[in-house]
Write a protein that binds this DNA or RNA. Structure first.
Lengths: 226, 226
DNA sequence: ACCTGAACACCGTTCAAGT
DNA sequence: ACCTGAACACCGTTCAAGT
């Protein structure tokens, strides 16, 4: 009688928005965004596709719900006795790890402002507070925070794209480099050839460190003008 | 007899990969990614949907072709008598403008390494050369370039998302801030309330300036260690 | 070689109907 | 109130057939 394998669930537990989103997130984590369809999601829940529409108005609402849920898991660290630099590193790393835990959702996590706003506020507050502790005036806090956020979003996007496509971070670029005439792109060639595999890897905290040094330079520059 | 309005084209000019991509890019620029389907693209060209498959193997090949085409238009500026900082600003701004000219494609432009690799090489060479001119050793060139690239990608993504969704850059965040209890997010509140509308806007070159200051600090720090 | 048309296996969503 | 089932207007892609 059972049309599907071992699932003991008989469809008894009531369908809820939450149960739908949990299943959808699992589906996306396991099989990617392309696997997320209302029909497949419904069949995963053992339910008629149209039943979903009583809890979520559309597919895009499902995706927004996923982003919201994931950002709900974003618990911002606030290390004690830490420099403002360490606090920025901690928030940024927590965000990077959050996105890494759902790499198939990265495009939506970094892009859907509306759905991520609630969770993003907590991260922003921690970031702004760290920059305020560094002694920056409001306008510089805003500028500095934007740089950090844009960098981190760019990083996680490139990080996740590397995981989704099988090629390592720089593989596609190096492949094209090797296809090109040897007299082209001399600087890239020199850099790539003088570094080991290990040194070619990106470094999140090193990159962030450059930005924090720049923030410090900006702050000291403007303090000098006072 | 004519089923469509005014189009004088009779389907005479032969279907080519290039003609397909030009039409596809126009479709995406005008109506967004969702409007790009093989069937609609074919009807735009006055042709049977399956005709497309003789020139491009799949829809994803069409999208990759678009990315490739757009990056083909990426002509990297190399200003004369410019500081290395100005050269980085120029390359970054050219890339930003390129993406801005096709905002509906931003997700694919920033994400599809494979299709963008050819065009990205020219930008990278200019960037690496500028950083080499700044006196950085290879490993630092790589790290610094990654920071610049990740920042710029994060920026254009957020910039384009602002244009696609109608809300201005920070609108969603401020909206949620106003919905929240007034004792929450004190630092964000203080920053947002002390700035004018104008000062709340992001600033691409200011952000990039912070990063360049950080690069300079890193370089001087390591030079001091020699 | 290039284009067509029917067909297959999917989509998201609306609407009327069931309990 | 919540779920169902048929139906509509789409998809991408395969395959056999036309010229």
């Amino acid at each position: 009688m059972s049309r599907k394998q071992g699932r003991p669930k008989m469809g008894h537990e009531p369908l809820t928005r939450d149960r739908i989103l949990v299943t959808a997130l699992d589906l996306v984590d396991r099989h990617g965004m392309d696997a997320l369809s209302m029909r497949r999601l419904a069949s995963e829940l053992g339910v008629d596709p149209m039943a979903l529409y009583h809890h979520l108005p559309s597919k895009s609402a499902v995706v927004a719900g996923l982003v919201e849920r994931v950002f709900g898991e974003f618990h911002v660290p606030s290390p004690q006795n830490a420099t403002w630099q360490d606090r920025v590193h901690a928030v940024a790393a927590a965000y990077r790890d959050l996105v890494r835990s759902h790499p198939n959702l990265v495009l939506y996590l970094t892009t859907d402002r509306e759905a991520s706003a609630r969770g993003a506020l907590e991260g922003s507050e921690a970031l702004y507070a760290a920059l305020a502790a560094a002694g920056l005036p409001p306008r510089q806090i805003l500028l500095a925070a934007d740089v950090v956020v844009d960098f981190v979003n760019g990083y996680v996007l490139s990080d996740a794209a590397g995981h989704i496509g099988e090629s390592g971070e720089r593989a596609a670029l190096v492949a094209r480099l090797n296809e090109s005439p040897v007299d082209q792109f001399p600087t890239i060639r020199r850099v790539v050839e003088s570094l080991t595999e290990e040194e070619l890897r990106g470094d999140f905290h090193a990159g962030l460190g450059i930005i924090l040094a720049g923030i410090q330079a900006m702050q000291q520059g403007s303090a000098g003008q006072l």
